[in-house]
Design a protein around this nucleic acid. Structure first.
Lengths: 158, 158
DNA sequence: TATTGTTATACTCTATAACTATA
DNA sequence: TATAGTTATAGAGTATAACAATA
């Protein structure tokens, strides 16, 4: 019944738009909403992404960090340079393997990240407040579940 | 209570990740999932986006179409050239204003679009089937509502 | 003069290849 | 030899500027 994408009950219109066609523009708009907040704290999007990911667990190599945030390893080098120079992250050679760099947040970095994230989520909550409570709950549950899936589960044939 | 982004109940972890941090990668994965389907029919993402948008209503100018799908007007010209050459769209000078080009789908274009969209949504439905029914419903409701908002409502300060 | 579509150009972002140092 | 990080280069994608036709 949900097999054909068209003309189910509203006359020549799709039963729903493609998920990507809704999610990608919405994601872009949400990113655009973050930009003024980030700029106010001198952070670019990749820098914020780095700060966010370093919270969960200190990372052992730059390559691993790059992969985790969906960037090329060569692309975050300048970002890390800047964050280190500003005292927001630590980048120390691993004593056990001096090729690798142990990455971690400084207290200043953690504080900045918390400040920025609070501001961002505050705006997001205002947006979510427009939704009926049931939809909001389902939306967040589903979003959490789907975004936790490894990309191959979405890309690949199941 | 949802004011501070951190350390609500799970010890140093955010109550939730930022919406954009979940939506953008998920949107990318959904796009990646579409690519093989599109490629199988010789369509690039922008071309598919054009076909999707021309369904709703024939469009009076290329600029309007470009804006509607979030592209620069110069970027879709090659796309339209190709779609026209393949007989999937019609691009006729507006008799009332011969500067403008009236854009519409041909029957072949509509058929191709239906075929591709069915395949894409079929995959998407398999993904959605993993969710509890309540979450799935709330997710789709919220996604539809949020993506229907004008971008300024999300970007701007409300 | 302003606008539609087009072309040509410049710019930004991203990935590839080549180098250094450790292992 | 293989890997982590870095640098320099090339490529894709995108936007800007200039042009022709029409209003």
């Amino acid at each position: 019944m949900a097999e054909h994408g068209r003309a189910t009950e509203c006359g020549g219109q799709s039963a729903r738009k493609d998920l990507a066609a809704m999610m990608v523009p919405l994601g872009r708009a949400l990113m655009a909403a973050e930009l003024p907040v980030l700029e106010a704290h001198g952070l670019a999007m990749w820098a914020y992404s780095v700060l966010l990911h370093l919270e969960d667990e200190p990372v052992r190599t730059q390559s691993a960090l790059a992969q985790a945030i969906g960037a090329d390893k060569t692309r975050i080098i300048g970002v890390l340079d800047d964050l280190e120079r500003r005292g927001l992250i630590l980048r120390r050679p691993d004593p056990a393997d001096r090729r690798a760099r142990l990455l971690s947040l400084t207290p200043e970095g953690r504080h900045l990240r918390d400040t920025v994230q609070s501001a961002i989520q505050h705006r997001e909550n205002q947006l979510l407040a427009r939704l009926p409570a049931a939809d909001r709950r389902g939306f967040l549950n589903a979003l959490r579940a789907l975004s936790a899936l490894p990309p191959e589960e979405i890309t690949g044939g199941d």
